[in-house]
Simulated assay, not measured.
Amino acid sequence: MTPPSPREPGRYRVELVCLGNICRSPMAHVVLEERLAEAGLGDVVEVTSSGTGGWHVGNRMDRRAAATLSAAGYDPSRHRARQYAAGTADDVDLVLAMDRDNLEDLGGVSPRVMLFRAFDPVARGGDVPDPYYGGDAGFEEVLSMVERTSATLVAAIASRLGHS
């Protein structure tokens, strides 16, 4: 999968979207930012996340999501939930929805809007399951999907920006 071209040469903006912006998209946000920094792209790629619903705006991420990230060595403390704003796809380079319902809420696939797991090297195009109503194992499963997909996504963005 090849991400769309950047709107501004040498810079890239990614928006990650789930339902409430307290589990899946903030987990992906934290991991993707970390992977981009490790690849030397932290200064040229901006990552944001949001939810299609506004129920949790301003809240920290779900405590189980934060605990799963912390246990894996990530820092979840900066996240505050935001709601996806209409027109965001016109301002960023790539909007990645965590599942098909989120994708539908965003208006469906377009050149700049697609599923996050379109970049998953194991199960391309699948949904990131919502772990909210389950146990800890669901958050660990999401983290595993997010880590491997983020690695592929970072490589694709680096290639798009001409970084090796």
Rank of each mutant, 00 (worst) to 15 (best):
S5V: 05
R7H: 12
P9Q: 10
G10M: 03
Y12H: 15
R13I: 10
V14E: 03
C18H: 13
G20M: 09
N21G: 01
R24S: 11
A28Y: 02
V31Y: 15
V44D: 02
V45R: 05
V47Y: 06
V47G: 01
T48F: 08
S50G: 11
G53Y: 11
N59D: 13
N59G: 15
R60D: 09
D62K: 09
A66T: 11
S70A: 11
G73A: 10
G73Y: 09
D75G: 10
P76D: 09
Q83I: 04
Q83R: 07
Q83S: 05
A85V: 14
A85K: 14
D93R: 04
V95D: 15
V95R: 13
A97W: 00
M98T: 03
D99G: 08
D105I: 07
L106S: 13
L106W: 00
L106F: 01
G108K: 13
M114A: 12
F116H: 07
F116C: 11
A118Q: 12
R124W: 09
G125Q: 05
P131W: 02
G138C: 00
G138Y: 00
E140S: 08
L143E: 06
V146M: 05
V146Y: 00
T149A: 00
A151P: 00
T152V: 06
R160C: 14
S164I: 06
